[in-house]
């Protein structure tokens, strides 16, 4: 392939990456040192934006909530995804159908799912409160999205519906494990549970790492739930990083501040990447042994 041809083939992708990744990153760093309302001139203010953001209690809540999201996502998805994958791997009747249905929420827009749950939590017409009333547990009914104590958990619960993606990734890994292993164990008189725990589980480490990475990336991007269900409220109790960036930009017109928060999010993304790299290196070492 001639040099000119190579450049020609690469050009569209390189332009897209430059315009939508490299330039935005530089711009983010540059403008974070300016006070800017999005329309008027940019005023250089040094590290004022950084000072503002790091002393802002709402920003701290946003970071804290993003970390809670990550923790909750991992706790919900990894164990349940693994259990479901191991169970479907036993090939019960209709396992293909179950796999397809468990995955459905992943193809439906977060907007629709967030809305759906907004109505499920609704004080009057919602599925949840009506269920509690019918079950004679009226005392447990809440204005789920309007109380600071319940709003954040209520925001996170719908996330459990995405367990199908984690499950499928575990299943893909399971399908690479030779069946001879299973058959040999059965001949030796191992129970199905023993096979799962002692043979399959230890071999699932690569998929666990993939799933951790995926969940972290998802949580850093989560925007729709707080945006649509609570708007970050009540009393900013459901604010997260994406929504903070959005609100500082669209609501408050503090573009510089918004970009500092964006920078923090990008840095968190890089921390995630480093973390995954280290885990993968560890894995490489273990495999070599």
């Amino acid at each position: 392939m001639k040099k000119r041809q190579t450049i020609l083939y690469l050009l569209p992708a390189v332009i897209l990456v430059t315009v939508f990744f490299i330039f935005p990153l530089c711009y983010l760093i540059y403008v974070s040192f300016f006070q800017w309302d999005g329309l008027g001139p940019k005023v250089f203010t040094g590290i004022e934006n950084f000072k503002y953001v790091f002393s802002d209690a709402i920003f701290r809540t946003a970071v804290k909530n993003t970390l809670i999201w990550i923790g909750a996502a991992l706790l919900l998805h990894i164990p349940f995804g693994l259990i479901l994958a191991l169970l479907l791997n036993r090939r019960p009747r209709g396992w293909k159908f179950l796999r397809v249905v468990y995955f459905i929420p992943n193809v439906i827009s977060t907007t629709a799912i967030a809305f759906l749950w907004y109505f499920i939590y609704h004080v009057d017409v919602g599925l949840l409160n009506n269920f509690l009333k019918t079950a004679g547990l009226k005392g447990l009914a809440h204005a789920w999205l309007n109380e600071p104590g319940t709003a954040l958990p209520a925001n996170i619960v719908p996330f459990a519906m995405y367990v199908g993606l984690t499950m499928v990734i575990f299943m893909t890994q399971l399908s690479t494990i030779p069946t001879e292993l299973y058959e040999a164990a059965v001949v030796d008189g191992a129970s199905r549970l023993q096979v799962d725990l002692e043979i399959y589980l230890p071999l699932m480490k690569p998929a666990v790492i993939t799933n951790i990475m995926l969940n972290l990336a998802f949580c850093l991007r989560t925007f729709e739930y707080p945006f649509l269900m609570t708007g970050g409220g009540p009393a900013n109790s459901t604010m997260n990083l994406s929504l903070y960036i959005y609100k500082e930009m669209v609501g408050a017109n503090r573009y510089g501040v918004s970009m500092v928060a964006g920078l923090v999010t990008v840095l968190l993304g890089f921390v995630v990447m480093m973390f995954v790299q280290i885990l993968q290196k560890e894995r490489g070492k273990n495999d070599a042994r």
């Binding site: 990456v17 315009v19 939508f20 990744f21 330039f23 935005p24 990153l25 711009y27 983010l28 403008v31 999005g38 990336a217 850093l220 991007r221 925007f223 990083l241 994406s242 960036i245 959005y246 930009m249 573009y255 918004s258 970009m259 928060a261 964006g262 920078l263 999010t265 990008v266 968190l268 993304g269 890089f270 995630v272 990447m273």
Partner: peptide, 17 residues
């Protein structure tokens, strides 16, 4: 590396571009 960048952070740059 671009795979790991949470593009939500680029709201302002994309808007400007």
């Amino acid at each position: 590396m671009c795979l790991f960048i949470p593009t939500n952070a680029f709201m302002v740059p994309y808007y400007v571009i």
